[in-house]
């Protein structure tokens, strides 16, 4: 693993996460579409230097505006990268759509259920173990603004792996 892309919908906290991981200063705001270009930084994982990319928010891999175009191009150029799909824990369904697209494309994916504090506020619970079991990729919970859960996120990045969509469908149908 030498490159990690932070992807996800707009306003789920990718830039906050990026600033923590790469010790960077990407602009962070509370509205969708703050990041319109990618930012790059580096972090160390077990003595290995890994590049981290803060990708503009994208609803899906079918770009609707120029910021999303940047995101999709970024992804296509980085075939070997590990993708951390950042999801707003209070809006899991939307984030899962992009996560499935990323998995279908064959990227090693891991899921970060971010903004866990917001989900708790609105009384939404996500069974991360079950989600991990169905998707077959690592799923962690974070509150990026407070730096919670980042250690687990980083330590499990290496477990991210490509998964066959068929396996996921089998899992869902089996239950």
């Amino acid at each position: 693993m030498n490159k990690v892309l932070l992807m996800g919908q707009a306003n789920v906290g990718k830039s906050v996460l990026f600033n923590h991981l790469a010790g960077a200063a990407a602009t962070v705001s509370n509205y969708p579409g703050t990041t319109v270009d990618f930012d790059k930084g580096h972090m160390m994982i077990e003595g290995e230097r890994v590049e981290v990319v803060d990708v503009p928010g994208a609803f899906s891999l079918d770009p609707k505006d120029r910021a999303e175009e940047v995101a999709v191009r970024m992804l296509e150029e980085e075939k070997g990268a590990t993708v951390v799909c950042v999801i707003d824990s209070s809006k899991v369904e939307r984030g899962l759509y992009l996560a499935l697209e990323l998995i279908e494309k064959g990227y090693p994916v891991m899921i970060d259920l971010n903004m866990a504090d917001v989900a708790k506020d609105v009384n939404i619970k996500v069974d991360t173990k079950r989600l991990e079991d169905i998707l077959g990729v690592p799923v962690v919970t974070t509150v990026a603004t407070r730096g919670e859960g980042l250690k687990e996120l980083v330590s499990r990045m290496k477990e991210a792996k490509p998964v066959e969509t068929g396996k996921i469908i089998e899992k869902v149908e089996a239950s």
Partner: peptide, 15 residues
């Protein structure tokens, strides 16, 4: 598929 996964994993409580 998203719907089915969410049904399995997401529990929306009273708000």
């Amino acid at each position: 598929l998203v719907d089915r996964i969410a049904k399995e994993t997401v529990e929306v409580g009273a708000y």
